Amino acid sequence: MRITTVIIFFIYTLSQVNAQDIIGYFAGQPDSFSEYAVYVGEKKRLNLGFSYIQTRVISTKATEKGKIVTTEHKILNKKRKVSKLIKAMGMGEGILMPTTIDEKGGYYLTHDFLLGYGRNMERKGYIFYVPPQLSVGDTLQSGKQILSYQLMGRKNKMLVTYSDMKVVSEENLSTTAGEFPCVKIEGKVNIDDLKDDRNSKQSTVTYWMAKGIGIVKYLNDFNSSYTFELESFK
């Protein structure tokens, strides 16, 4: 009995160690910090009031099938401070985003920088599954999300459908934070406003992702193109 107990304990401990050592397309080390600049349009003007996003891994928890990484997201203005507008949107204290990483290092991406913030945000579903290894030509498992949230006093509910997500190239991407070997993923997104169908729209999305970091650059081509680009990583 004692030998069996020791073996089970050893296997469970080993699974926890392996889970902590997983390196996939995400920042999984405790206190990992990323800062993204938010640009609008082809000339990449810094977006007013919503100029920077800072993310920090605040905890990692090993499970029997991988680990859970919890990241805090903060939105800042051009002065890298929380503005009155950001506070009014209910995001002054930051937002916690837990992500479940499976035992192989894959996970379901559930957060879209442009669509993922708001007071009392409820998110169901996922954007696409990010496997531990990505190669040019890979077609990714695309998903759907229902986003329910309150923004500036208005209750919103959207159905966001992603499709045709595919790895189109490998690139060494140069950013202010440095140069990173990335895979480039392109796809389509359809946004249906379930409260007002006049606000429904279609767009294309592009992700540049690197091992040990996750998203290095993100482009969403709405009426005005929005670019989120890594400024700092440590």
Rank of each mutant, 00 (worst) to 15 (best):
D197L: 12
S203E: 12
V167M: 06
V167I: 12
N190V: 07
T204H: 01
L147C: 08
M152L: 15
N190H: 05
G187C: 10
I191W: 09
I191V: 14
R198W: 08
V167G: 07
K211F: 11
S169F: 05
A177Y: 03
M209V: 15
D164A: 10
C182F: 07
K188V: 10
E179M: 03
K188H: 13
N172K: 14
F180C: 13
K201Q: 11
R154C: 00
K195W: 00
N156K: 09
G153Y: 07
I185M: 07
S203I: 14
K155L: 10
S203W: 04
Q145F: 03
G143D: 12
S148I: 08
G143N: 10
R198Q: 15
D197E: 12
K195D: 07
M152C: 03
D196A: 15
S169C: 07
M158K: 08
T175M: 03
R198C: 03
G153W: 10
D193R: 03
Q141H: 01
I146F: 09
E179D: 05
G178K: 02
S142F: 03
E170M: 12
L194I: 03
F180G: 14
I191E: 06
V160E: 01
V189I: 12
K155M: 11
L173E: 02
S200D: 12
N199G: 14
N199C: 02
E170G: 03
F180E: 13
K201I: 08
K157Q: 14
R198F: 11
T161F: 00
K155F: 13
Q141I: 00
N190A: 09
E179G: 01
T175A: 00
S174Q: 12
A177C: 09
L147A: 10
T176R: 02
G178V: 00
K211N: 11
S142E: 00
V183C: 02
M165I: 06
Y207N: 10
T206M: 13
K157I: 02
D192R: 06
D197T: 13
T161Q: 11
S163W: 01
I185W: 07
K157G: 00
F180K: 06
K211L: 15
L147V: 07
E186Q: 09
D193V: 06
T204V: 11
V189Y: 02
Q145D: 04
K188N: 15
K155H: 13
D192N: 13
K184M: 06
R154S: 13
S163P: 04
M209F: 12
I191T: 10
V168Y: 00
Y149E: 08
T161C: 01
R198G: 15
Q150T: 14
M152E: 08
D192C: 04
L173M: 02
I146D: 09
P181S: 07
G153E: 08
D197G: 01
D193F: 08
Y162S: 09
D193A: 08
D164H: 13
K188R: 13
D196C: 05
R198N: 15
T176L: 04
M152S: 12
Q150E: 10
Y162P: 06
M165R: 03
E179A: 08
E179T: 14
K201A: 08
Y149C: 11
K211A: 13
C182N: 06
T175C: 02
R198I: 04
K211Q: 14
Q150L: 04
K211S: 11
L147E: 09
M165Q: 08
N190K: 11
V205K: 06
